[in-house]
Amino acid sequence: MSTPARRRLMRDFKRLQEDPPTGVSGAPTDNNIMIWNAVIFGPHDTPFEDGTFKLTIEFTEEYPNKPPTVRFVSHMFHPNVYADGGICLDILQNRWSPTYDVSAILTSIQSLLSDPNPNSPANSMAAQLYKENRREYEKRVKACVEQSFID
């Protein structure tokens, strides 16, 4: 059955294939267009470099009027990522706009990896190390990067 959300997700998918942003990819799962798998490659010149981080994106029929639920499947060590993989990012919560599409979501999360906000922590250890002990922070992040090869 075609609904506005499904129709829009087909458009998002088509655009992601035709005009993919650097360093991100995503596609619906085989039998359900409402659930997508995505990958974000760790941005260059950050401790996340070389990592391949997997995510799931779950949409409701209210998309694009409401944001999807985005979650890292790969283990992450990042100030704004919860232990369960949930992401603390304004555009996925109270600043969502229907003009965002899957490309915009993935590139926003990608730039969150480069630019964490330690003042709004979802992982207080990561936030604290990011602020006070950058070397240890980077060590912990690199462990995630290596883990991401195995996942």
Binding site: T69, N80, Y82, A83, D84, G86, C88, L89, D90, I91, L92, Q93, N94, R95, S108, S111, N117, N119, S120, P121, A122, N123, S124, M125, A127
Partner: peptide, 25 residues
């Protein structure tokens, strides 16, 4: 772009609950 507003309490614990999702729910 900024992070979503969060309550202060989440800064005190090492394993904050995902409050954003609770509120949204």
């Amino acid at each position: 772009m900024k992070m979503a507003d969060k309550s202060e309490s989440s800064t005190n614990s090492d394993t904050p609950t995902n409050q954003d999702e609770l509120i949204l729910a």
